[in-house]
Design a protein around this nucleic acid. Structure first.
Lengths: 249, 249
DNA sequence: TGTTTACATTGATCTGGATCAATACCCACA
DNA sequence: TGTGGGTATTGATCCAGATCAATGTAAACA
């Protein structure tokens, strides 16, 4: 097994830099990725006031579930989350993974009720946007509404791609696509696109991609044997991005 | 094969009732399902002004494609559409079917570019909402923005359910879910929930559900043999809704 | 009215990835 | 430093649904 060094832990550095959880939006290193983008500074100050900067969620803790009363949407501040939708018989589908700067819970707006469950994959923190106040604010701040719609639209278009992945891609293509998507998101956040630490289990990955854990495990082994990646448990190193891209279809 | 009578053609009656395509929103029979819901009458009048009521699209015609420049989102007025996302190698996934009152093209907002292709499944018409003007209007009309967000959120939550369907359901469960979803949408539009005419081909259904045409065809036959439905080509009659619901998982 | 072309059904066979089973590894906590 | 429980890997087998192949049906057009 190839040796892996200097692997960036999942947004840990960021979490450290953001140690002061009451840091105002304009001081936040996620600023560029987050809602405030495009807001004028006095608008931003108003938004700042309604945001609740909440304490940490520890690994496995629910941010919300379909049982929770709907009151807010969230932006990941540090760490990561997964969302799932479940059937009565217990089957569940991991519908998404969420990293710092990304919005969780937007599918709740329509029915004013969470339609999925969100769970922390590691020690994580969020900014809470109380939905009612957000809406009040939006009435006098069109730019904010535009930003929100933009976020919703982005997630929508990502979901369409996932539908293609689930419906039409082979196991191999699915995993290659997944790895590159994660890599891209790390890069957007200023981390290495090549070396990173997955916060989710093989089971979560498999579930999300519509595969069995065993298939994912075998693919990791094969990708490694073929020199596409190097793995050491949850640490991943992309070794041949070009070939991975070809594998995506 | 069971005989099928009095099957409601797909929103044809509606199309006829809406024969005057310049009908103002407040006169439109889709009012209740559409964007204007919750707007005050003077706001509505303003919205009315920017809506372009376009001519018909005939079967197979593109409403937009990923090549089209982005300028508007659409609301189906009569008929129906499918949207697809495609890979370079030609594979494509049908990401959704759209019926009167439903919004098409919202995933384009984020990147100001259509991320999918929309094609008419039959003779259809739409209301065109020029996005720039919609945004201008939204600035002075918070309720409009709220409505838009609500639509986006609704589609988002529908897509999450589709991800569950694609990732976790069996072929049988997929088809049962599909039939009931279509039935529900007909009912919402004031048509029979039991007897309707599908506007999409078996191929489109199969593609959308992540199945082969042959599998869908066999399932239709089996459902019919088991007395769950009666079919005559594209005409469908639900005979045992309860059992279909159980089959959804 | 026949011909064309696309769509749908049915049957036979094959296979990618699931499932079952066993072992190995990792780390949390005593 | 050992022990237990979750997580991961690896191998053997199976099967739901894909694919291949052929025929049937319908609607569109000359």
């Amino acid at each position: 097994m190839a040796q892996l060094n200097n692997v960036t832990p999942l947004f840990k550095d960021l979490a450290k830099a953001e140690h002061d959880y009451n840091l105002a939006c304009k001081e936040c290193s996620l600023y560029r990725l987050c809602l405030p983008l495009g807001l004028h500074s006095n608008d931003l100050a108003q938004l700042d006031k309604i945001i609740k900067r909440s304490q940490n969620y520890s690994r496995g803790q629910h941010l919300f579930s379909t049982e929770s009363p709907f009151s807010a949407i969230y932006v990941v501040r540090s760490g990561s989350f997964k969302t799932t939708v479940a059937a009565i018989d217990g089957r569940e589908q991991v519908t998404g993974f969420y990293f710092p700067g990304e919005f969780v819970g937007m599918d709740a707006i329509y029915e004013q009720a969470y339609k999925s469950n969100a769970k922390a994959l590691e020690s994580s923190s969020v900014c809470e946007l109380p939905f009612e106040k957000l809406q009040e604010l939006g009435a006098s701040m069109p730019q904010l509404q535009v930003q929100m719609m933009s976020r919703l639209s982005k997630e929508l278009s990502g979901d369409k791609s996932l539908m293609f992945l689930l419906g039409k891609k082979t196991a191999e293509e699915k995993l290659a696509t997944f790895l590159l998507s994660i890599s891209k998101r790390f890069q957007d956040r200023g981390f290495s696109a090549k070396d990173f630490q997955l916060s989710m289990s093989r089971g979560d990955i498999a579930n999300h991609l519509g595969l069995a854990v065993e298939t994912v495990s075998r693919l990791f082994t094969r990708f490694q044997d073929e020199g596409l990646i190097a793995t050491h448990n949850k640490a991943i190193s992309l070794r041949d991005t070009e070939r991975l891209e070809q594998l995506c279809g």
